[in-house]
Write a protein that binds this DNA or RNA. Structure first.
Length: 567
RNA sequence: UGGGGAAUAGUUCAACGGUAGAACAGCGGACUCUGACUCCGUUAAUCUAGGUUCGAAUCCUAGUUCCCCAGCCA
């Protein structure tokens, strides 16, 4: 059992309801559904819904359907359908044979619409969109009945059939339910059931000229599929009376599912709005839906986030009805927890600083042993080559070290991981005064990293051989937005210009060069978890940083710097 | 001024009339050939005011604050 799966399964009000329904024998089996609209890629907010719907079904021995809510052909595309299926599978869920589309039910939905007309519960309205809006009233004033509200059944039927036949242009008429234009709930003020849309549908092509609205399609689709618990987000709460109205007023409806609402996920430093994500892609702020900075499942996959971590994260945040914003640190914790356990360790220098070991013989080199995982000996060891010329991380050297810095600085001794103790003897600078090289000496007696005289060093730093390492591009990602609570209405102003750092001159342990294109995640020691990016080609290695290691020193040193400034 | 929801540590979620608890974050420490991991300790909350009750986060009343709704989007 994995770390994530070992976490105690969450209990929440949805699961309580399901349990109670089962206990009371209102249902003998539970059937849920995940109903994405294929008008964009899935993001981490959808992951919450997917885990909830598939999770509940799994835990209670029921089933979960994947149903595409494809009622608006002007926005939906096959690309999105394919991507959504791929992402749900990747997250770790299986709908088996239960793959459906609202469009599968178009004919039945249409027949029910005729039934509603025959029952005097629906009518064709010729008002323009503007007229409808004006007559809808406001939040505080009731609406006015449409002048077309009392058409005869025959006329309504005739008009609806001609709408279906494609006789009228877009927007000419709609079919509305006859409910109550004075209702305090605006959803009940004669909602639209069908609108005319001459558009090419990804699945039904040009067969239809009219398309059902969400409200008209959703509940009935649930009923057709025998959904027991129709779980959606809070903004649909005041649609529930309408959801129930259709199920109560359509004769011969096969079942009456119940809708329950939970709060959608919000994350700090993140915008989870399909509209904004679409704009980020369209306007080139990111490289695509799978840009590793995107909160999409495709982006996270490319970034190296294990699906197990996503599932564990969702389990940790729980399900409730209060609007909330989860700290992104919670997500990062879940990612690190999974990666720490499985990722093999390697050494890589992201921002190289050359080191020459002056007392190491020129032209000589040797192999040293390094463990692949400190907590899992079964993962074995590997050889790494040590020589006279090395690279270390620029950040691991300070010419004038602040208090508490125990890495390399003039005269200081540190351990090169798995290798030797070295002491910095001299700092070489260019004409601009920048440090370009360190001259060091090593202690041959400390081979492997232990001093026979019991001498201790405080710092251990990673390194690679200058001659034996391989070059690579490493992409380090930071949050896309500067603000913890970015404003979706004005997102462009809040974009973080440093969300992507491309480190073109990184040097890696040669063992990393053989990583294929879908390799296991790896930890670059002391830095973070990385994976190869699909941009990797023969001769060009590209790595993505999934998430950095916790960095206590970064916090301490930042405090020292700001403290020094104010002092 | 309409309708629908929600308020518990900094954050997210529990507690379902009977000791307010966990995770993340924070802080302190131990350990350490990763300033990681792990381990230990610790700070920290019931929106307000009344009421019912032996006892209220939970029930009642009145407020307050926040979120959603006026698409032929979902």
């Amino acid at each position: 059992m994995s770390v994530a799966e070992a976490t105690t399964p969450g209990r929440d009000f949805i699961r309580d309801i399901v349990q109670a329904d089962l206990d009371a024998k209102r249902h003998t089996t539970v059937v849920t559904r995940f109903p994405p609209e294929p008008n964009g890629y899935l993001h981490i907010g959808h992951a919450k819904s997917i885990c909830l719907n598939f999770g509940v079904a799994e835990e209670f021995g029921g089933r979960c359907h994947l149903r595409f809510d494809d009622t608006n052909p002007t926005k939906e595309e096959q690309e999105y359908i394919d991507a959504i299926e791929k992402d749900v599978r990747w997250l770790g869920f299986d709908w088996g044979k239960h793959l459906y589309h609202a469009s599968d039910y178009f004919e039945q939905l249409y027949q029910w619409a005729e039934d509603l007309i025959r029952d005097g519960k629906a009518y064709v309205d010729d008002q323009s969109q503007d007229e409808m809006r004006m007559n809808r009233g406001t939040l505080t004033e009731p609406g006015r009945n449409s002048p077309f509200r009392d058409r005869s059944v025959d006329e309504n039927l005739d008009l609806l059939r001609r709408m279906r036949a494609g006789e009228f242009p877009n927007g000419a008429r709609v079919l509305r339910a006859k409910i109550d234009m004075a209702s305090g709930n605006i959803n009940l003020r004669d909602p639209v059931l069908y609108r005319i849309l001459h558009a090419n549908h990804p699945r039904t092509g040009t067969k239809w000229s009219i398309y059902p609205s969400y409200d008209y399609a959703h509940g009935q689709s649930d009923a057709i599929e025998g959904i027991t618990h129709s779980i959606c987000t809070l903004e649909f709460e005041d649609h529930r009376p309408l959801y129930d109205w259709f199920l109560d007023n359509i004769k011969g409806i096969p079942s009456h599912p119940h809708q329950y609402e939970f709060a959608r996920l919000n994350l700090t430093y993140t915008i989870l709005s399909k509209r904004v994500l679409t704009l980020l892609v369209r306007d080139g702020h990111v490289s695509g839906w799978d840009d590793p900075r995107m909160p999409t499942l495709a982006g996270m996959r490319r970034r190296g986030v294990p699906p197990e971590a996503l599932r564990d994260f969702v389990k940790r945040i729980g399900v409730a009805k209060a609007n909330s914003t989860v700290d992104i640190a919670m997500f990062e914790h879940a990612v690190r927890e999974v990666l720490n356990k499985g990722a093999q360790r390697r050494m890589a220098v992201l921002r190289p600083l050359k080191v020459v070991i002056e007392n190491y013989p020129d032209g000589q080199s040797e192999e040293l042993d390094a463990v692949n995982h400190p907590d899992d000996p079964a993962l074995g060891t590997r050889k790494i080559r040590f020589g006279r010329e090395l690279y270390v991380e620029r950040d691991d050297f300070m010419e004038n070290p602040v208090k508490g810095f125990f890495r390399l600085s003039p005269g200081k001794e540190v351990r090169l991981r798995y290798a030797y103790f070295v002491t910095c003897r001299e700092v070489v600078k260019n004409t601009a005064g920048e440090v370009i090289e360190l001259r060091c000496t090593y202690d041959p007696a400390t081979r492997g990293g232990d001093a026979p005289d019991g001498r201790k060093v405080r710092g251990t730093i990673h390194w690679v051989s200058a001659t034996d390492s391989v070059p690579a591009e490493v992409r380090v990602y930071n949050s896309l937005f500067n603000s913890p609570n970015p404003d979706a209405a004005n997102f462009a102003a809040d974009l973080n210009p440093n969300s992507l750092e491309v480190l073109a001159g990184a040097r890696l342990e040669p063992s990393l060069a053989t990583s294929g294109n879908s390799p296991a995640p790896v930890q670059f020691e002391r830095q973070g978890y990385f994976c190869t990016d699909p941009d990797t080609k023969p001769g060009k290695l590209v790595f993505n940083r999934t998430v950095g290691l916790r960095d206590t020193w970064a916090k301490v040193s930042a405090a020292k710097v700001s403290g020094a400034k104010t002092a």
